[in-house]
Nucleic acid binder design. Structure first.
Lengths: 260, 260
DNA sequence: TAAATTTGTCTATTGATATAGACAACTATA
DNA sequence: TATAGTTGTCTATATCAATAGACAAATTTA
């Protein structure tokens, strides 16, 4: 909790405590405090299985009433991040953020090796639809050409860590939905169409508050933040093969941009 | 507003409107609606200078009272994003998000060319301090070796678009603060130390709610989201020269990951 | 066992958030 | 010049969020 690169040094002169909380902001104090605690856990400031400071101490740190801290804690207990035990204390259940690599050869499973004991992709649904403008542009297709859309969720140790939609040229990749259902892997599915290597051509990254769909898809609580990537994958000779939009829960995932 | 890749198609069956709003979430309805409007502007769903739908229409779309919509709008008027004119309507002032490129040769000014008419970096302060653990690791220095810290803000067309802290080995780069103050450019400052090319070695990306410091530094409203990058720059022969942590306002900036 | 520490529950009060309705003020248009 | 459409202001009411204090219940420590 004390290695945040000198926030308390040169720069804190004449400024409020960095841990302080915004009132009348439209975001309730308990939600802000819950976010701070999540942040502290994600960055390792509160170790896994360790006890949180007692409620009175947290209340003092954030400058709020004990009951307000209790609201924050009870929200996190509800989310399964903390466990409170009467008389003993409140304990951290959840782990640090996963570090999800993004680079020229971004692959789901290989990138998370060593960080989780188990990970897999679930195919939620597939459909054929006319390409929207941005999909058509990304794939270099005519405006309303048919594309196959695969909706997937990535899970690690039983918790959702990504939610993605991928679009493929329907003529070239007819049947990729079945391949995906059978193999559980985009890479393996593309291999069936003779593509044994592909590269990340472009990635655009943004962040926003989770909307209703994100909350349901990623098992988040209202107010959570999602990282959004929009990307195009190409073959080694430059043909675009996949357009994708992925959403990651910011409280559980960070993106590590690796050499391309 | 209708090109969001088929949210309304296959996937909307049995689900609430995607635009719907979460109640009792700890985030007030007006703040959620303000976020949606910002999002819609940033993605181009509401064109610049165009009129927003009238308040009663927005209230119906989001399923809230007209007064709640008015709270959201008045917050955005306060932020300078919208302008309301009695009897006429409410109009969009602000532009789409800047697309900030990140790649092997990430440079501030060159990357934003064409998107803004004016951009520059302001040196806010500099100091010498012992390296924190993560800075020492990033730069390959001993744990408490002296490092120079430069605090900077990037501005485009008068609006803050980034806030960064950069750390440099104090022995090797003594005087880089003066160089930075004179040139207003990291690249030019490093050139004075014989470094005419440098590369991005690693970037780790995350997102979180803005804290009190972010609000002040980036001129944001409470509840805003910041993208955070932690990066190491190296010379072409692999020596680490700069460790940095940058924060970007998610409502004004997206990150474009380019080929390295 | 007694005391100290910590979480859990209850009551009460205040201020912010959200809904509801009515009407004024201003603008554009038929 | 009416009329319709839009933003601005006011009153009233109900619910949520936050503070305050007291004490119960469970656990750990002296």
């Amino acid at each position: 909790m004390d290695d945040r690169d000198g926030r308390q040094g040169t720069f804190m002169i004449g400024r409020q405590e960095a841990d302080s909380i915004e009132r009348r902001s439209g975001v309730s104090l308990w939600r802000q405090i819950a976010d701070r605690i999540l942040q502290a856990i994600a960055t390792g400031d509160f170790a896994e299985n360790a006890a949180l400071p007692p409620e009175v101490a947290l209340a003092e740190r954030y400058g709020v009433n004990r009951h307000t801290v209790r609201s924050a804690i009870s929200a996190l207990v509800q989310e399964g991040v903390l466990r409170a035990e009467q008389g003993r204390g409140t304990f951290v259940l959840s782990r640090k953020r996963l570090s999800y690599p993004i680079g020229a050869r971004t692959r789901f499973s290989t990138g998370l090796q060593g960080q989780t004991s188990e990970r897999h992709i679930v195919l939620l649904s597939s459909s054929v639809e006319p390409a929207s403008q941005r999909v058509a542009e990304g794939l270099g297709l005519a405006r309303a050409a048919d594309v196959i859309r695969l909706e997937t969720r990535g899970e690690a140790d039983g918790r959702p860590v990504s939610r993605a939609a991928g679009w493929f040229d329907a003529r070239r990749f007819a049947g990729i939905d079945k391949a995906m259902a059978e193999t559980g892997s985009i890479t393996a599915s593309l291999a069936r169409f003779g593509i044994d290597d592909y590269l990340r051509q472009s990635t655009v990254l943004s962040a926003r508050h989770a909307d209703a769909a994100d909350l349901a898809d990623l098992d988040l609580q209202p107010g959570a933040i999602v990282l959004v990537t929009v990307a195009v994958n190409i073959t080694s000779d430059g043909q675009p093969i996949q357009f994708s939009e992925s959403r990651f829960p910011a409280e559980r995932v960070e993106l590590k941009l690796s050499a391309l």
